[in-house]
């Protein structure tokens, strides 16, 4: 998975969100080792200090824990990561509906449009 980073927004919280998403999707299981700071920095093309801060923020939120000299691991309780994914899905959907409304579509029309688009 590539990292999707919005250039207008601070990088650190975006990395936190995306790591949450990957945990919520099951890409990393509880107590599994996460990517290293360097791996994230290289694949996302971002500063290692920023990645470090993201992991520290995630640790404060209880989503990951660190083992000295080994790296970062997914916590037992991943509720917060799942909530983050849910919030992002809601945000994306809200934004999509708002855009479609601007293009002249009512909510019912949008739902039908999506169904037809699937086929």
């Amino acid at each position: 998975m590539d990292w999707i980073l919005d250039k207008k927004k601070p990088i650190c919280p975006q990395l936190c969100e995306q790591i949450c998403v990957r945990i919520a999707k099951g890409e990393f299981e509880p107590n599994q080792k996460l990517l290293s700071v360097r791996d994230v920095a290289l694949t996302a093309g971002v500063n290692p200090n920023t990645v470090q801060r993201s992991f520290e923020d995630l640790e404060r939120m209880g989503i990951v824990y660190s083992i000295r000299g080994s790296g970062w691991y997914v916590s037992e309780d991943i509720t917060f990561a799942k909530d983050t994914l849910e919030r992002m899905l809601q945000e994306k959907t809200t934004a999509y509906f708002a855009d479609m409304n601007l293009l002249g579509m009512q909510n019912d029309e949008i739902k039908n449009y999506v169904k037809e688009w699937e086929q």
Partner: peptide, 8 residues
């Protein structure tokens, strides 16, 4: 400033 400060 830091990049994230500027963006925020």
């Amino acid at each position: 400033q830091t990049v994230d400060e500027i963006r925020a």
